[in-house]
Amino acid sequence: MTRRTLFAAAVLAALSALPLVARAQTQDRAQIQDRAQAAAEIESLREQIKAREAVLLAPAREDLDAFAEFLAQPRTGIIRLLPREKWDGKLSTRGGGAYYSFVSLTHEYGFGSDISLEQNYFGVGFGGADFGFLINIGNVPLESVTTGTDGVRYLATFNTPRAEPDARVEQRRTGAGFEMEGWSYKSRLPVFTKQTYVVRSVNYGTSDILVAFRVVRKDSDGSVVVLWKMLKKFSKPELERMPSAAAAAGS
């Protein structure tokens, strides 16, 4: 076979491959366009889901109207908590709308959450050495609750431990529950409507707060609407990896 023949064969082969290359490039462009469209649709759906979740988490209009005067005061709010056992993992909001941070003002779990709703119980203290106290002070008007209210004084004057071993002691103590001056404190308490609660929530490296809240509504889907006010913000607690105060005193 002559060089001329070989060259002609090579040219013919290259020309015959051109439609295949063009077709592959067309398919690649189509795939890129399809992926771009899919990404845009997903983003649009995500925004729609977020908007619908906001509706799901919103308090009833009648509650907003009923407590408008109270909500006009500083450091107050009204929220809906969803039952974790029903919604966790089903919403784009981490925690399924069952958690809330009174500092970050978000239901998103992991941003210093101060309260949760699960199995018809309120809870506090969710990760690491974080801990908290809950107390039900009864059918007391939220407006009248202060740091000097009976049952609240202990929480208002409690000194947050800095050493991790001491923080773990408080975790165990609040988990089991204890009594002080005739009042019961625990990290989990059952939900009752028309009852006022107070929570001291310690999130190391984030916040340490005292909040009073009242259950104003419990709906048939298990969600609750909570009216709240900030009683006190303490200095941001920092956890130190050091021996406990008791151990240091004994050494």
Rank of each mutant, 00 (worst) to 15 (best):
I79P: 04
F122N: 04
E47Q: 13
A58S: 15
A30S: 10
A66G: 02
E118N: 09
T106A: 10
Y109E: 14
V103W: 02
E108A: 12
L56F: 07
R29T: 04
G77N: 05
A60C: 02
I49R: 08
F102L: 06
Q37F: 02
L81Q: 04
P74I: 04
T76K: 06
Q48M: 10
E47F: 04
S116M: 07
L105R: 14
E43W: 00
T26M: 09
A36L: 11
R29F: 03
A54H: 07
G112E: 08
K86C: 03
S92A: 07
R75L: 04
L91A: 08
L105D: 10
L64D: 05
E53T: 02
G112L: 09
A38M: 08
Q33W: 01
R84I: 03
R75D: 15
L81D: 02
W87P: 01
S101H: 11
P83L: 13
Y121Q: 09
Q31N: 11
E62W: 03
N120D: 15
L56W: 06
L57M: 13
S113T: 10
E43T: 03
I79V: 15
S44M: 06
D114C: 12
L45C: 00
Y121L: 12
R84Q: 15
Q27W: 02
E43Y: 01
T26V: 03
R61D: 14
E62G: 00
L71T: 02
R61Y: 04
S116Q: 05
L91G: 05
G89V: 09
R35G: 00
T26D: 13
D28I: 09
D88P: 00
Q27M: 12
K86E: 14
W87V: 01
E118M: 05
D63T: 13
A66T: 10
K86A: 14
F70N: 01
Q48I: 05
F102G: 07
G96N: 09
A68R: 15
L105T: 01
A39K: 08
L105F: 03
A72F: 02
S44V: 00
D65L: 15
E41D: 11
R29E: 13
A60S: 15
D34N: 09
I78R: 10
E53F: 02
F67N: 11
E69Y: 10
A51E: 13
G77F: 05
G110P: 07
K50I: 07
R80E: 06
D28L: 13
L91T: 11
P59K: 05
P83G: 13
L64C: 11
P83T: 12
Q25C: 07
T93W: 02
K86H: 10
P83W: 06
F122L: 15
S113L: 00
N120Y: 01
R61K: 14
F70M: 01
T93S: 10
E53L: 04
K90F: 11
L82D: 05
Q31F: 04
L82I: 07
L71W: 04
F67W: 15
S44F: 05
R84G: 05
I78G: 08
L81K: 05
A36C: 00
S44A: 12
Q33L: 11
F67S: 08
E108Q: 14
N120E: 11
E85M: 11
D63V: 06
G89R: 06
Q27R: 13
T93F: 01
L82G: 08
L105N: 13
I79Q: 07
Y100L: 04
F70D: 01
G95Q: 04
